[in-house]
Design a protein around this nucleic acid. Structure first.
Length: 775
DNA sequence: ACGTGGCCACTTTTT
DNA sequence: GTGGCCACGT
């Protein structure tokens, strides 16, 4: 294998084979390249592909790695087990979970299902739902599971009344999950540890299968994942390589423990550490900005990224008056530059995507939204999946209750109670009780409907092809239900979603069975094995998995989702105190360390950019229907002024409060921040450069087009009566540098100016936006 | 049983 | 601005 395309450190990382290896890989330092080469190198030097386990953070990263290994090795790559932690654990559980008393056909519950169950529990236990929040309980449960704290331990440590309530909910929750034969995401990891711990034979089997283990994004592993790695490598016969960057640890809220990477060398004896600091992704201007932000963090492994890519364009920061202008300006610029595929807009919270989406629609800019409402969280999709779940897991009462009355079968609370009572008295699962509807005291109509339901389930169960199950379900009742429920337009839309699911099912069927060494270890899988595997696949799909970089579309996503990705042009938006860093982090008891996590997130965002980085903030932002004021993010202040072009609003303009009552959102949340003056509506319309009028506090979806027209025709952009440059003049632009005007066209609301820039060539700009200056 | 209107809380980040 | 939940009417 030719390693000459790798630098010295990268080569060293590929070749090192003595013991545990930690590769500290800065952003863009080619770590995926190193892992891929390492895997390929191992295989070329006689390691059997099915002895290699590579763990990535997302399915997308896994399939990318598969592709790259494939291009180096060809068919040999198929046998390498490349997957996410959860998928890997899913596989193990699928085969070995019966050793700890669960059924092999378990269902994976997502956060939504989890919340539903918890709300039910809170009600059942007689607590006030307003005081005991399902969210809070869920996060406490997750915390315990991620830190390997058992219910008993939690109970003992619970001091306050609230803690005791949480503990009680936790207990009932786990019992319910067990009854449903269901696991949540955290269970998947935790139960894997349990199996490995309690069953030496199984542990040995798996650990001797995977002689080489590679873990990517190691900085975001939690304690339980760490435990899994340790259990699999404790015999000393396994070669472990982990790759990570402590500066990119951004999942503490999910239990990720940065100490896993910081203390790697203490835990794994004789560990070797190799640092990769040469960056191949970004320009030096971008890297310097990244470095100047991240150096404000304490307790990190010191390193400084550098590159040979030249300085490149200067990083630009722009402050806008409000979030609408931020979105308008950015989307119109993206439209002009017409390079959607290589451009991404990043933000701290998913709620911020909305404004950008609306602008994209208005400007006809094609976009992909990552995250937010997941495809698989849509109601119709969840319904179809619930039907599929009860086919393979009859204990899955949560899914049964979801669809027993969808479509409407006249089965309400009282009928359900009777069914449950019957089930309890006869020691049956609720689904079994439904099958015995004839023996239950129910009205004639309900019995008839249940008969139909039972026949439907039996019919679906007899069907082996994934797509046929969906087709049958649609035909027998669900399609009609969609149109009845949502009307022609929305019904069709939702039906389309189901067809998309059907397509995924077909693709899954066609690529099945994939080579899977763990499956070989299994002896007798059930008849519905494809359906089961399909459902596991779907449960573990994440948002970023759906990004398709071949489409010429602008990408909108949260900073978290952007990890591991790269784009030529990055718009890092919403750089405001209280938003980024978040209010929660600033006001937390542990503010210092939480702000450090936010700073790492900022670092991740900055280092996504290859060529151009645009940072932006807004003075006023819409929050829950009213405006709040914000200060510029501290992260902007941390950037060395020499590294960045700042376009900041005049400090005296436009700083007032439109919110009726003071909430924490009202002051830009930097400590000791000022309180803003109260808002005077009449004053509002006097302000130029604003496209709201006094009757229109917010821009609704419907009014948006009109607003933009108003905006274009004069409420905001002021078309110059004359331009102070003409064709042939030399002009300068804040971002593109100097160039020569080659064309000026009057398009009514503004002038379109074409400039041949010295550095980047010809570009057409709106005069009112470009603010060109004659030199 | 089921639809509807009004009230409320809500926004970090995700496998 | 929005979705979830409750009370009430059919």
């Amino acid at each position: 294998m030719n390693l000459s395309s790798l630098n010295k450190e990268q080569q060293q990382a590929v070749l090192y084979n003595e013991g545990p290896l930690l590769i500290i890989a800065g952003a863009g330092s080619g770590k995926t390249r190193v892992i891929t080469y390492k895997v390929a190198y191992l295989v070329e030097n006689g390691v059997s592909p099915d002895n290699i386990l590579a763990i990535t953070f997302t399915n997308k990263a896994a399939s990318e790695m598969k592709e790259r290994v494939d291009s180096l090795l060809g068919d040999n790559s198929k046998k390498i087990f490349i997957s996410t932690f959860h998928k890997f654990c899913g596989r193990i559980l699928r085969i070995f979970i019966e050793s700890i008393g669960y059924n092999r056909n378990f269902t994976i519950y997502d956060t939504d299902d989890q919340k539903k169950i918890l709300n039910k529990i809170i009600k059942e236990l007689g607590y006030d739902e307003k005081k005991v929040k399902a969210r809070a309980v869920a996060s406490r449960i997750s915390f315990c599971k991620n830190h390997d704290i058992s219910i008993d331990e939690f109970k003992k440590s619970a001091k306050s009344e609230m803690e005791k309530i949480y503990a009680r909910c936790f207990e009932v929750y786990d019992k319910k999950m067990f009854e449903n034969n269901a696991l949540d995401f955290d269970d998947m990891l935790l139960l894997t540890v349990r199996i490995l711990k309690e069953n030496e034979e199984i542990r040995k089997k798996i650990s001797s299968q995977f002689k080489y283990i590679l873990v990517d994004e190691y900085q975001d592993t939690n304690m339980v994942q760490f435990e899994i790695i340790k259990l699999l490598t404790m015999d000393g016969n396994n070669k472990l390589t982990v790759v990570g960057d402590d500066d990119q640890s951004i999942y503490k809220f999910r239990g990720a423990d940065i100490r896993n990477i910081l203390e790697f060398e203490n835990v794994f004896e004789n560990a070797k550490i190799i640092k990769l600091t040469q960056n191949y992704r970004s320009t030096n201007n971008i890297l310097n900005v990244a470095n100047s932000v991240i150096r404000n963090n304490q307790g990190r492994k010191d390193k400084k990224l550098w590159s040979e890519n030249g300085d490149g364009a200067k990083v630009v920061f722009t402050e806008y008056e409000d979030d609408s202008k931020e979105a308008y300006s950015i989307i119109s610029e993206i439209k002009r530059n017409n390079d959607y595929k290589n451009t991404a807009i990043l933000y701290r919270t998913n709620a911020q995507s909305r404004k950008f989406e609306e602008m994209c629609v208005s400007f006809s800019v094609p976009y992909t939204l990552v995250g937010g409402i997941n495809f698989y969280e849509r109601r119709e999709i969840k319904d179809i999946l619930a039907y599929m779940h009860i086919l393979v897991n009859p204990s899955d009462t949560n899914s049964l209750f979801r669809i027993i009355n969808v479509p409407k079968r006249g089965i309400g609370e009282s009928s359900l109670a009777k069914i449950l009572e019957y089930a309890g008295n006869n020691n049956l699962m609720p689904l079994e009780a439904v099958f015995n509807f004839d023996k239950i005291d129910l009205s004639k109509k309900v019995k008839e409907n249940l008969k139909e339901f039972v026949e439907l389930i039996i019919d679906l169960k007899s069907e082996n092809e994934l797509d046929n199950i969906i087709d049958k379900l649609l035909k027998r009742c669900y399609e009609e239900f969609l149109y009845d429920e949502y009307g022609d337009e929305e019904g069709k839309e939702r039906l389309e979603n189901i067809y998309e699911l059907r397509n995924k099912a077909i693709t899954f069927k066609e690529t099945y069975p994939e080579n899977d060494i763990l499956k070989d270890l299994a002896s007798n899988l059930s008849a519905h094995v494809i359906l089961e595997d399909f459902l596991y696949e779907i449960a573990l799909i994440s948002d970023v998995d759906n990004i398709n970089e071949n489409e010429d579309k602008l990408t909108l996503m949260s900073l978290h989702a952007s990890k591991g990705l790269e784009y030529d042009n990055i718009y890092l938006t919403g750089m405001n105190e209280g938003l980024f860093p978040s209010y929660q982090s600033i006001s937390s008891d542990d503010s210092d360390s939480e702000v450090e996590e936010e700073r790492r997130l900022c670092y991740v965002g900055i280092t996504r950019a290859k060529k151009n980085l645009y940072l932006s903030s807004a003075r006023r932002r819409m929050h829950n229907g009213s405006y709040n004021n914000y200060l510029i993010s501290r992260f902007i202040d941390e950037i060395d002024d020499k590294l960045i072009t700042k376009n900041v609003l005049r400090t005296d303009s436009n700083f007032f409060n439109t919110s009726a009552n003071d909430s924490f959102w009202d002051y830009g949340v930097r400590k000791n921040s000022f309180k803003s003056k109260s808002f005077n509506k009449n004053k509002f319309i006097d302000i130029k450069n604003d496209f709201y009028d006094n009757n229109q506090k917010t821009v609704s979806k419907i009014d948006l087009k009109k607003s933009i027209d108003t905006y274009k025709t004069g409420a905001n952009i002021v078309k110059a009566t004359t331009l102070d440059y003409e064709v042939g003049d030399r002009v300068s632009h804040i971002k593109f540098g100097e160039g020569k005007v080659i064309k000026i066209e009057d398009i009514g609301r503004d002038y379109e100016v074409t400039v041949d820039f010295d550095d980047i060539g010809s570009k057409t700009l709106f005069a009112a936006f470009a603010k060109l200056e004659k030199i």
